[in-house]
C-alpha cells in the first residue's frame, strides 16, 4: 500500500494545529459523532446511546451480508429498505469489541440503500437499525467468520 507513511506523519503533524484552531474544524455531519455510543462495549448500550431506544424487527429492511466471511477484515454489507422517511441507518456487530460500526445519515432525496464494508472479530450477528419517521426498526443476520479481522 502506498498510504502511507507520509500521510500518517502529516496527520500527526497537522492534528495538533487543527485542534488548537477549533473554529476551523467544520461540523460535517448533521448529527455529531456520538462518543458514548461508538465507545460502548455492548450492543444494548451502544443502541441506547445512539438511538435512544430499542428497535422493532421489520420485514421491510433487507440486510445483505455473506453467510460465511472468509476474511473478517472485509465483510461487505448492503442495507436497503422500503420504509418511508428513513433518516438514518446504523450497523452493529454484536461481538465486536465496540459493536457500533457506522451510522449513516440520509437526508430526504437520498435512497435508503447503502453499501459498505465492515470488520468482524469473530462470528457474530450483524444488526441494521433504521430510524424512519422517528421510529426504530431492525434486521439481523448472522455471519460466520473464518479469520477474524480485528486483532493483530
Amino acid at each position: 500500500m502506498s498510504m502511507t507513511r507520509r500521510s500518517v506523519i502529516k496527520a500527526i503533524a497537522t492534528s495538533g494545529a487543527l485542534l488548537g484552531l477549533g473554529v476551523l474544524s467544520p461540523r460535517l455531519a448533521f448529527a455529531a459523532w456520538n462518543e458514548k455510543a461508538f465507545r460502548a462495549k455492548d450492543q444494548g448500550t451502544a443502541m441506547q446511546e445512539l438511538l435512544g431506544g430499542e428497535p422493532q424487527p421489520s420485514a421491510e429492511i433487507l440486510l445483505k451480508a455473506p453467510d460465511i466471511a472468509e476474511n473478517g477484515a472485509v465483510v461487505p454489507v448492503t442495507v436497503s429498505s422500503t420504509l418511508s422517511g428513513v433518516e438514518s441507518i446504523s450497523l452493529f456487530v454484536e461481538d465486536n469489541p465496540t459493536p457500533l460500526a457506522v451510522e449513516f445519515l440520509l437526508p430526504p432525496g437520498t435512497d435508503a440503500d447503502i453499501s459498505t464494508r465492515i470488520r468482524m472479530g469473530k462470528t457474530s450477528k450483524i444488526t441494521a437499525v433504521i430510524k424512519a419517521e422517528g421510529k426504530l426498526y431492525s434486521a439481523v443476520k448472522e455471519v460466520k467468520v473464518t479469520i477474524g479481522g480485528c486483532g493483530g
Binding site: 448533521f30 448529527a31 472485509v74 456487530v93 457506522v102 451510522e103 445519515l105 437526508p107 435512497d111 453499501s115
Partner: peptide, 25 residues
C-alpha cells in the same frame, strides 16, 4: 449546497472504507 450523505463511523469499518449511495438530483 445540500448534504446528500453523511456517515459517522468508528474502527469496525474496514481499512480503506467503501460506501455507496444514490441521491435524487
Amino acid at each position: 449546497g445540500k448534504v446528500v450523505f453523511a456517515a459517522n463511523m468508528s474502527t469496525p469499518v474496514s481499512k480503506n472504507p467503501y460506501f455507496s449511495f444514490t441521491f435524487l438530483g
